[in-house]
Design a protein around this nucleic acid. Structure first.
Lengths: 219, 219, 219, 219
DNA sequence: AATGAATGAGACTTCATTCAT
DNA sequence: GATGAATGAAGTCTCATTCAT
């Protein structure tokens, strides 16, 4: 389902009780990810999820308190995968360059896990609790990144409070851009170059010091 | 309901047929705006809307083909009010300053029409047709503003395609910021100063030339 | 609509009150015939009929007590046209031959007035009063025909009561045959020859004396 | 409900899951038969059927895809009962005599299963799929009977194609006769003798060879 | 006589959740 | 723990008819 969670690929011969239990729960979870990712939360009825998972409807309630509980776990789970994915693809270059790398990695992740975009975008309304949890995760991590860049002198003149607002703007920008530019004819596509360059100009100039002198006009 | 459309404040003694018709449609429309704004699209059943409007359920279908048609009209309608509202509050200062004025006016509008935020945010899923229409309206208008600023020399180095991406980023930034900072304890509040300053720094430096020299450090 | 009722083909310049009244009623009637014939009684809502007729819904109730009243007039009206149509196509040959002519003329009428079949078949449930009226018309006329044939010696051995039963059988046979053999690919088609020959054998031998001697083996 | 399916006469103490399931489905089916038979398809709303069956509306959809699916099963199911019923009452006499037996048995069946007539007659419009299935069943079986009679020399001069038309005529005759003569004052009654004699004369003389010599005038 | 907006009952269907087996 | 039938509330939409203009 996600790059880091290799799909369970078949019934293993012998499982103890705990393993069987976890395995069933996992089947349901993966089924939900698949369905929400492809058809949206609204289509993710318990009937449909359990059918996809190959278990009975009643089984669902042995593993989750209710439908909402599962739905609220979806985004934070994948969100963590995303953070790890992006971190792994961010080098040790200048702060401004790193930000562009993160931006690109975000779109790479969308193509890697096509379910993510839909789960992210709809979560706000269909899984508000999970959405909030995800946002908190991202904001916390991102603000820390900005703080470090400020400590390193790559950012000046922004307070911690302003950093939070900046992170929301970055997330908003990515969210809207991904919706506009990640799809084409039903398929998930790479983001166009002019979008990357626009982001680069706006955010690099806006956020980072140009004491990485000269770079500004090189681009 | 909206700043420019003063609420019909009571049954006028005599209305001809056309007026009565329009008045009923308006009652339904306003009821829907109120309900979606307060409780979201999902709660905006025809039963609830017509009850709020004080008409029978069947009456709804004399004025709208179906529930979705009404829902899809909500956002574009208010969106136009918003554009007008912002335009009226934008002066003739430098382009960068105007952008900050627009940003502030956007948040003023949210407080003026508290329904807007929810209608905007949920429209993407519950009224996709209307959402798209609204986006098109905004992008068209906004790109034109940016082009004029470029013509005036206030923006350099951005192509038309990049402008479109920029507008999506601006909209995304506002959308996420408004969700984070416009509410407090259930009530709609003014956006904090540090959010405005963060936006100002990021966008002014990122988008506009500082050939309005020196200004950069004045702020 | 029917062969004998030439469609009113346009607004005549000046009509007095009575004529205008009749003209409106006629428009509604024709619209109903068209709709029921093409889409069935179930689809013939007052809204649809009046729309087709080009009048307002309320106008309907100036001319008909209610929807059912109109519906019940449809079949008897066309039924009379049918009787006349068949009579005109029945010669003065032997009684048995005349019956075959009537049978053929029935199918000719269906092709002439394609609305008839549907109106006839559905009337039993959607316009029972009209259906009964139509049946009575047909039975009365048909029994009289049979009686005359009996008087002429072409039929023996059937009582008046039996004649009524025979007429129901003839009508039933035609009804079922028309449903089975009058349509082909959506269009109304001529009835196949083997159907006519089957009818001819069954009814001629069954009903009429073969004192028209030898004929039986001629065919 | 039907002669061959004795009604389940009360909740049996212990039923396993499969049996309980079948029992519920059966309750719904029987309720529908009763309602359609007494009040017609149009009155057979899911609400009414489930109320009659003593189950919740939602339960209906655990057993039938939708309302139409059940409706379309009604006639073929009873139709099969009818065929069996008639076959059991048909002896080994001459072909012509057997046909009269079948005719009489048809009317006996109507009295045995009073729901049948209404279900049959309305099915054409309210359950066309089921109606077609029923017709096919009947035509197939009936044509075979006629073919065998022809093989035995009891019928001459009819082709297979003509047989099909004949069967439609027989069915039409029965259908119309049953509607006319099976009811009296709301109750289902035996068919009058003169109807039987009329059928006997028409069909015996029309269809069968009188090489069962002399018989013709014996009756 | 014509209009057409308003009415409101009632239809089918979906779905999260429960619970006996 | 797994099952899946049962539940019943709630949703959208249709339509014959009325009535003020």
């Amino acid at each position: 389902m996600t790059p880091t969670s290799q799909a369970v690929s078949g019934k293993v011969a012998k499982l103890n009780r705990v393993e069987r239990n976890a395995w069933t729960k996992r089947k349901i979870f993966d089924a939900a990810t698949k369905i929400v990712g492809k058809h949206g939360y609204a289509e993710a009825s318990v009937a449909r999820i359990t059918e996809q998972a190959g278990v009975a409807q009643g089984t669902f309630y042995n593993h989750f308190e209710n439908r909402q509980e599962l739905l609220d776990q979806l985004l934070p789970k994948i969100g963590i995968d995303m953070v790890r994915f992006i971190r792994e693809r961010t080098g040790t270059a200048q702060a401004a360059r790193q930000e562009i790398e993160r931006f690109g990695a975000f779109f790479d992740f969308i193509r890697e896990v096509p379910e993510f975009l839909r789960i992210l975008n709809e979560a706000e309304f269909f899984a508000p609790t999970g959405y909030q949890k995800h946002l908190d995760n991202i904001v916390t991590a991102y603000v820390r990144i900005l703080q470090r860049a400020r400590d390193a002198g790559a950012i000046e003149d922004f307070s911690d409070q302003e950093f939070e607002a900046v992170v929301y703007m970055l997330m908003g920008a990515r969210g809207y851009l991904s919706q506009r530019y990640s799809y084409s004819g039903g398929a998930v596509t790479a983001v166009p170059d002019h979008v990357i360059s626009a982001y680069q100009k706006l955010m690099t100039r806006g956020l980072f010091t140009t004491s990485d002198k000269g770079n500004r006009h090189d681009r």
